[in-house]
Amino acid sequence: MATGGRRGAAAAPLLVAVAALLLGAAGHLYPGEVCPGMDIRNNLTRLHELENCSVIEGHLQILLMFKTRPEDFRDLSFPKLIMITDYLLLFRVYGLESLKDLFPNLTVIRGSRLFFNYALVIFEMVHLKELGLYNLMNITRGSVRIEKNNELCYLATIDWSRILDSVEDNYIVLNKDDNEECGDICPGTAKGKTNCPATVINGQFVERCWTHSHCQKVCPTICKSHGCTAEGLCCHSECLGNCSQPDDPTKCVACRNFYLDGRCVETCPPPYYHFQDWRCVNFSFCQDLHHKCKNSRRQGCHQYVIHNNKCIPECPSGYTMNSSNLLCTPCLGPCPKVCHLLEGEKTIDSVTSAQELRGCTVINGSLIINIRGGNNLAAELEANLGLIEEISGYLKIRRSYALVSLSFFRKLRLIRGETLEIGNYSFYALDNQNLRQLWDWSKHNLTITQGKLFFHYNPKLCLSEIHKMEEVSGTKGRQERNDIALKTNGDQASCENELLKFSYIRTSFDKI
């Protein structure tokens, strides 16, 4: 039985969820670079991206490699990797027998973001014989899940209580170790020597080791999670996991709180800001991140802002960003909400898709409305799209047979046209069989910064309504002859009103 693990408890099935942008060198404390989270699957090609990484700022997932063999891993080693800020997950990587050479110096898994409450997941690794993470000293947050690894031993010899604050939620089941077939031998045991430290858990006094050649490092209890030197002297209180010299914040392997210019500090002093819960960055760093993602459509890219001495992905609820200094300031009234469309555009074809934009005031991208039916549609669209004030790209209304009016965009005031449909149009209306009105132009103002209007096959939309939009939106004169079809717009509506004058002759039985 794995020490510190839980057996036999019912657990939810383990679901495996399925960018080499360097964020800056980590400095003297770390020998390499800070790398983003990685999802490495199918083959070993991307694994080489770990070569210079000291910190993975995010998670590391290595999974679904069915053609790899043990010899493929023999020359692979990433000794610079010290810390993973989120979680480490391995799933069905064939041929991998140990992690001792792959990650010989991995010391800390912070667990800032977890995989279903777990910071370390080893699942269905069919050839893994031992973990071998002999320098792993601290899992700051989260638990361990090690399950269905039929060859995995050296679990009962690990004292997880020396690595985690609590072992109650560890789930370590259905491994070879369960069948008591392992016969784990710690260093020196074969020669009758006791080389590794022994600890007591559940009444068992057991030597602690990761492999037959690597003991588990056990520091004096007084050192807590700070770690200790090879001689057993406690590291500085700002260290986490390990250090090369005692009581020196510049000799830590990793930091308990924050890293700044080669030393570990309790908090980031001005003019620095907390970033990702582990390091200090200056304003320029946060500003660069903001600008890199301002026009990016890459998933996970955030326009970072500053709030409460932190550089964070977005302002919290009730705050909006001051564009001059990136500071989050309290909103006066309802907060603006910028919604970034991942692929640059979004099609609204149902109430469900409209709900995804609920509360958005600025759309960074283009909207395509293609709704053919739905219950209580006008009210639903207004509830979900009615706060949109600005669209950076274009607005396209296409084959939306259920629409009679666009009044559900009740606050839309600006279409920038930074991206144009077919390279020309910022407003595009095609084949809307029941569209009769755009907006009530006596109450609604709309500016279209650039781009043209396109109207074709809107049989109940009168040309007068379209011409009014040209005047109000500032697009009059931009359109070419064929942009607004004269014969297919309003051709099934009563669009022309003329005053009919009647004269009559009164007659009676005795007068003409």
Rank of each mutant, 00 (worst) to 15 (best):
L240D: 09
C235D: 00
D261A: 02
E49D: 07
N202A: 07
E71Q: 03
C228G: 02
P249M: 01
L96T: 01
L164K: 12
G188S: 10
T229G: 04
F115Q: 03
T140A: 11
L63N: 02
C280D: 00
C235F: 00
P269E: 00
F275T: 03
C264V: 00
R69S: 05
H59M: 08
Y134T: 02
C215V: 12
W160E: 01
G58F: 01
T157N: 13
P336R: 07
D177P: 15
P187I: 10
C239G: 01
G95R: 05
G32N: 14
S161E: 13
K129I: 08
L174T: 12
P334T: 11
V34G: 09
N325Y: 04
Y259I: 07
H214W: 14
K294Y: 15
F66A: 06
H214Y: 07
C235Q: 00
S324A: 15
P197G: 08
N309W: 08
Y154P: 14
K100H: 15
D178L: 13
L60Q: 00
C215F: 08
L90T: 06
S166R: 06
S77L: 08
S143P: 10
E130Y: 12
V34I: 07
N150V: 08
P249F: 00
T157D: 12
N42F: 09
P36M: 06
T199G: 09
W160D: 01
P104A: 01
T45L: 12
F205K: 10
L174H: 15
N257H: 10
D72V: 08
N257K: 10
L114S: 04
D184A: 12
D288Q: 15
E180I: 03
K310F: 04
L332V: 05
N149T: 09
F91H: 08
C243H: 00
N138V: 03
F73R: 06
G95N: 05
R110M: 10
L102R: 01
D178E: 13
D169M: 07
K224M: 04
I201H: 14
S213K: 15
P79G: 05
L102M: 09
F115A: 12
F103R: 00
K67Q: 07
Y154T: 11
Y259V: 06
P334N: 07
L174G: 10
C293A: 04
P316H: 02
F283G: 04
P104W: 00
L240Y: 13
V200Q: 11
S296V: 03
K80I: 04
L106W: 02
N105W: 02
V167R: 06
L106H: 02
D86S: 03
D288S: 13
L152V: 05
Y304G: 03
F285H: 05
W210F: 15
V144E: 01
F123P: 00
N43F: 03
Y94K: 05
M83K: 03
Y87Q: 00
M137F: 05
K67T: 06
L332R: 07
P336G: 05
D159H: 13
K67L: 06
C235R: 00
F283V: 10
Y304K: 02
Y304N: 04
E33L: 10
L29E: 14
E130Q: 09
S225C: 07
F91C: 01
C301R: 05
R113T: 07
D277N: 15
Y87E: 00
C196M: 03
N175F: 12
P270R: 03
S77R: 11
G37S: 06
D247E: 03
C196Y: 04
H226E: 05
P330W: 04
I163D: 01
S54K: 04
K80H: 06
L155T: 11
Q287T: 11
P270C: 02
G262H: 04
A230E: 14
I82P: 00
H302I: 07
A119E: 00
P249L: 01
P269H: 00
Q287L: 06
A198E: 15
T320F: 14
T194V: 12
C328W: 00
T68S: 09
G142L: 02
T140N: 10
K100M: 10
D277P: 02
G142C: 00
Q303K: 07
Q245N: 09
V108A: 03
L289C: 03
C186I: 12
N295K: 15
F116S: 12
N170Y: 04
G142R: 01
E180L: 09
H28I: 05
V218D: 08
R92H: 08
F66N: 02
C53G: 00
E180F: 07
I139Q: 01
C215D: 10
W160H: 02
S54N: 15
L102P: 01
Q204Y: 05
G142E: 01
D159P: 12
Y304Q: 03
F283W: 08
P271E: 02
W210T: 06
N309E: 09
C264G: 00
C252M: 03
M65S: 13
N105D: 04
P316V: 03
T68D: 12
L89F: 07
D261T: 13
L89G: 01
L260W: 02
K217I: 13
S143M: 13
I185N: 13
H28Y: 09
E180K: 09
L289D: 02
R41V: 09
N179G: 13
V167D: 03
P220T: 09
C182A: 10
C35W: 01
P269C: 01
C186A: 10
L29W: 11
F258C: 05
G132R: 01
H212Q: 14
D288K: 11
L120W: 01
N43R: 07
P271S: 04
E180Y: 08
N42Y: 12
K217G: 06
G37N: 14
Q303P: 13
C286H: 00
E97L: 05
Q216G: 05
L29Q: 03
H28F: 13
S296R: 03
L332F: 15
L136S: 01
T211R: 14
N195G: 11
S284W: 13
T157V: 06
L64Y: 13
D261C: 01
N308Q: 13
Y272V: 02
N308M: 08
N42P: 02
M65F: 10
I158M: 11
P316I: 06
I56D: 00
N43G: 10
D39R: 14
N195R: 09
T68P: 07
N202R: 04
T211G: 01
N150M: 05
S296A: 12
C280R: 00
I222S: 10
S324R: 11
H28V: 07
R298G: 11
C153E: 03
Y171S: 13
I312S: 06
I82V: 06
N150I: 11
N309S: 08
C186G: 10
G203V: 07
H48E: 15
L90E: 00
H28C: 10
Q245M: 09
F73V: 05
K224Y: 14
L128E: 01
H274A: 09
L289Y: 15
E57A: 08
T320Q: 08
C53D: 00
L327G: 02
N202H: 09
L88S: 01
I185M: 11
C234S: 04
D165W: 12
I122L: 07
Y319P: 01
N309Q: 08
R141M: 07
M321V: 15
S237R: 11
